[in-house]
Design a protein around this nucleic acid. Structure first.
Length: 159
DNA sequence: GCCAACGTTGGC
DNA sequence: GCCAACGTTGGC
């Protein structure tokens, strides 16, 4: 099974690549979208590469790299009454929502802004550059992943 | 904070 | 099963 590649969005207010660097690993709980759920539950494998994307940021863009440390498993937060991720329809017997664990890989020296992704040849098919693309877990091709990694290594630190 | 785009819900 | 209303996402 060849390694796959993903882009995962998170608002900096919730979690950042710097926090992941400190924590080493993290759970990606709280995804409540069926398409994203399906990717996590059905397709993600340990070792898959992840572009860590900061959404609703200034600017938004890819801030670093991670990899899948644990493949899809039921999101335990869906069972925590009172928690904001609680969903009464999801039970341990019949879980609805799934999550994965990420492992820290690298922090780019600077962000790769969405604007740069949009103007980079070879990335025009990426979901994230499409208008109105709200999906928080997206597949990317190896070619796209490699290009973004190259951009990331050359990214300039914020002034 | 605005608002366009999108997903989900619920009445019928 | 349609579709209007509503809620959320996320760039700007």
């Amino acid at each position: 099974m060849p390694r796959r590649y993903w882009l995962m969005k998170c608002e900096p207010a919730a979690y950042t690549i710097e926090q992941l660097a400190r924590d080493g690993t993290c759970g990606w709980e709280g995804v409540r979208n069926y398409q994203a759920r399906n990717f996590m539950r059905d397709d993600m494998q340990v070792g898959d590469g992840v572009l860590f994307y900061a959404s609703n940021a200034d600017p938004s863009g890819v801030t670093g790299l991670a990899e899948i440390a644990r493949a899809g498993y039921p999101d335990p937060f869906a069972w925590k009454k009172g928690h904001k991720y609680f969903d009464a329809a999801s039970t341990p017997d019949k879980p609805i929502w799934y999550t994965v664990d990420l492992k820290y890989v690298a922090t780019f020296p600077g962000i790769v802004p969405l604007e740069q992704l949009k103007e980079t040849p070879g990335l025009d098919q990426m979901m994230v550059v499409r208008k109105g693309s709200r999906l928080s877990v997206q597949p990317v091709t190896k070619a796209e992943y490699d290009i973004v990694v190259k951009l990331g290594k050359r990214a300039k630190p914020a002034a």
